[in-house]
Amino acid sequence: MSDCTPLEGYKFQLGAYKCTCKMSYEYPWKDGREWYLGSFIEKEYTKKMAGIFNIYDGLKCRVSRAPAMLPSLFR
């Protein structure tokens, strides 16, 4: 449901990427971003593996609520 790409200026470092939602999915939170930061994803995954409270399983793009594009009948 997402595509991840490396952040410019960071070579091969952990968490130096961002994941954007694929078409017909959307970023679920209204925090001024449109993507997940790789370091945040990795931090939450580490917490999950340690058995600590985390939101890793909630880091998913949701199905977009935008109405489907309908062909125009009045052209």
Rank of each mutant, 00 (worst) to 15 (best):
F53G: 12
R65Y: 01
Y25L: 11
C19N: 00
M49A: 14
F53L: 11
E42W: 03
I41A: 04
R62C: 00
G9H: 07
E34S: 14
F40Q: 13
T46W: 10
S39C: 06
W35N: 07
D57T: 14
P6V: 07
F74Y: 05
S39E: 10
E8T: 15
Y36I: 11
Q13A: 06
N54D: 14
Y56M: 01
C4I: 08
C61R: 00
Y10L: 11
D31Y: 04
L59N: 01
C19V: 07
D57R: 13
F53D: 15
G32A: 05
C21P: 03
I41Q: 04
K22F: 02
V63K: 15
E34D: 13
P28M: 02
L37W: 00
N54Q: 05
C4N: 06
L7T: 13
D3R: 04
Y27A: 03
P6D: 07
M23E: 14
K11P: 06
T20Y: 03
M23A: 14
Q13Y: 13
K43E: 14
T46F: 12
W35M: 03
K22N: 10
L73I: 13
A50R: 15
Y56V: 02
K22Q: 12
E34W: 09
K11V: 03
Y36N: 04
T20S: 15
S2K: 07
S64R: 05
Y56R: 10
F53I: 10
F53Q: 14
L59M: 15
Y56A: 10
N54R: 06
P67H: 05
D31M: 08
Q13L: 13
K30C: 05
K60S: 08
V63C: 03
C19M: 01
S72I: 13
G51E: 06
K22S: 10
G38D: 08
K48V: 04
L7I: 15
T46L: 08
C19I: 08
R62I: 15
L59G: 07
A50M: 14
I41L: 15
A66K: 15
K18P: 00
S72C: 11
K48G: 09
Y17A: 02
T20W: 02
R75T: 11
Y45M: 12
W29M: 02
R75Q: 11
E34L: 10
S2E: 05
A16I: 06
M69I: 15
E26D: 10
R65E: 13
C21E: 00
S64V: 04
M69N: 11
R62H: 12
R65D: 12
K43T: 09
P71L: 08
N54V: 06
Y25N: 08
K47A: 08
I52C: 02
D3W: 05
C4V: 08
M23K: 15
S72R: 13
S64L: 05
F74A: 02
C21G: 06
K30Y: 09
C61G: 13
T46Q: 05
G15P: 01
T46I: 12
Y10C: 02
M1R: 00
T46P: 00
